[in-house]
Computed example of a mutant assay.
Amino acid sequence: MKGRNMTRWRDPAKDPRQEPKSNLITLEGAQRLRGILDHLSRVKRPALSAKVGEAAALGDRSENADYTYNKKELNRVIARIRYLTKRLDELQVVDRLPANTDKVYFGAFVTLEDEQGEEMHIRIVGHDETDTTRHWISVDAPLAKALLGKSLDDEVTVAAPGGEQTWLISEIHYRLPGADAETDA
């Protein structure tokens, strides 16, 4: 059978999508996920349910595009609510600073300098709060794994698609949990 349902076979033992993800999340990330869950449950789902009900009342559902679209959207929202509820139960909120703030641990803001002297600012966060625009990387990412436990002025070498890259840790700092997110982003 050919078509859109066919996918490339991947060896489960080597598939990076099968690797277990850490269950760590920052306090801000947990609050954001709870806010999304609350919005979906209290606002989005009831509104979509009402739209589906209105569209169903119009009659023939098989040719009713409004009914079909809103029903699919409602199912998508319900699935997202189910996922967030389950995921929030699994997560471990890190709501305190590490004992030694001179080393890189979960939640750290790290400034790295490459061999050409260019700087990169990253933050190590949980899988559910990664954000490429803010340079927040998952604690499960290869760069984050290489940085964990390192100190200021340590060199870290990471395998990258273009070859190995070496970074020097030039700054490490943390933000108190619950502090204003815009001050250190």
Rank of each mutant, 00 (worst) to 15 (best):
L84C: 05
L97G: 11
K103Y: 06
N23V: 05
E73S: 13
R4V: 08
L37H: 11
L97Y: 10
E129M: 10
P46K: 04
A50E: 15
K21P: 03
L152K: 00
L152E: 05
E164P: 12
P177A: 00
I81Y: 07
G107F: 01
R175Q: 15
T101V: 12
K72V: 04
S41C: 04
A108N: 06
P20M: 07
R96D: 14
D154S: 08
A55P: 06
K21C: 06
P12R: 07
S49D: 13
I122F: 01
P16Y: 08
Q116G: 04
A141D: 15
D154A: 03
Y83M: 12
G178A: 05
Y69A: 12
L74G: 03
Y67I: 09
T132Q: 14
A50W: 05
A30P: 01
I81M: 12
E113C: 03
G53V: 07
D11G: 06
M6D: 07
G59L: 02
V104H: 02
A79T: 12
D38T: 09
F106N: 02
L27T: 03
H135D: 14
I124C: 06
V139A: 10
H127T: 11
I172N: 06
G178D: 12
I36N: 07
A79L: 11
A99L: 12
I78H: 02
P142F: 08
E171P: 00
D66R: 08
Q18K: 14
M6Q: 11
R80K: 14
E155N: 09
A160I: 02
R17D: 15
S22P: 04
R76M: 09
K103M: 06
K44G: 01
H121L: 04
D38F: 07
W136R: 00
A160G: 13
I122G: 03
L168V: 13
K71G: 00
K145G: 11
V110D: 00
K72A: 13
I81E: 15
P142E: 15
I172Q: 09
L24C: 05
W136E: 14
G178W: 10
A160Y: 07
K103A: 13
E90S: 11
L97H: 11
L48M: 11
G149D: 09
K150P: 05
P12E: 12
T68H: 07
N64L: 08
E54G: 10
L112P: 01
E90D: 15
K44P: 01
V94L: 01
D180F: 08
I122E: 09
L147W: 08
M6T: 09
A144C: 12
S49H: 05
V104Y: 01
K150W: 00
E115G: 04
G178L: 07
E164A: 14
R80S: 13
T111A: 02
E171T: 02
D153K: 00
Q18M: 14
D102A: 14
I124H: 05
A99Q: 14
E115K: 11
L168G: 03
A141N: 10
A13W: 03
T130E: 15
D102S: 14
Y67G: 09
G59D: 11
G117Q: 08
E90K: 12
L176G: 02
E63Y: 04
D180M: 11
H39D: 15
T130S: 03
V43P: 02
K72M: 12
S138T: 09
A159I: 10
R10G: 01
A99W: 02
R42C: 05
A159H: 08
A13I: 08
